[in-house]
């Protein structure tokens, strides 16, 4: 079941504007949505099992704290700092994914607003 109130707030507050992760967090926190994360860490060492865990967070702003600060943002390599937030088309529909990587890790988050919660499928891969 999708969340009708979520769509309504997006339409009224943002119209046709493209949205960033910060906008998404703001809307989810306004609606008091809880976050359920299904996380998989793919182990780079052969013969070792992947680590899977299920976690709940009370809000999207709390969940954001678990993501690297530079994710979902542009990066200024000259000055070595994250800058503006990137825009994601699917936020309007409550379904979108974010990918991010640095020299040692590759991250992928798939966000879906379903009913009274945000379901996040998160994969963390270590790069050899």
């Amino acid at each position: 079941m999708k969340n009708d109130l979520y769509k309504k707030i997006i339409e009224e507050d943002f119209g046709e504007k493209s949205l960033t992760l910060l906008d998404f967090i703001k809307v989810c926190d306004t609606l008091g949505l809880t976050v359920f994360e299904h996380k998989i860490i793919r182990c780079p060492v052969k013969k070792m099992e992947n680590e899977i865990s299920n976690n709940i967070y009370s809000s999207m702003s709390q969940y954001r704290q678990t993501m690297p600060d530079w994710s979902a943002r542009e990066y200024d390599y000259d000055n070595d700092r994250a800058t503006a937030y990137l825009m994601y088309q699917g936020i309007k529909d409550g379904e979108f994914s974010i990918e991010a990587e640095n020299s040692s890790t590759y991250h992928k988050w798939i966000f879906s607003v379903v009913g009274q919660c945000v379901v996040v499928h998160y994969a963390l891969n270590f790069i050899d």
Binding site: V35, N54, I56, Y57, G115
Partner: peptide
Amino acid sequence: DVDSVFDKIATNTTYQDGIRVSGE
């Protein structure tokens, strides 16, 4: 009642799985 986070957990895990919940 209506769709809650616990419904999502119940459809994605079994009752043997540990679920970590973080608060303040």
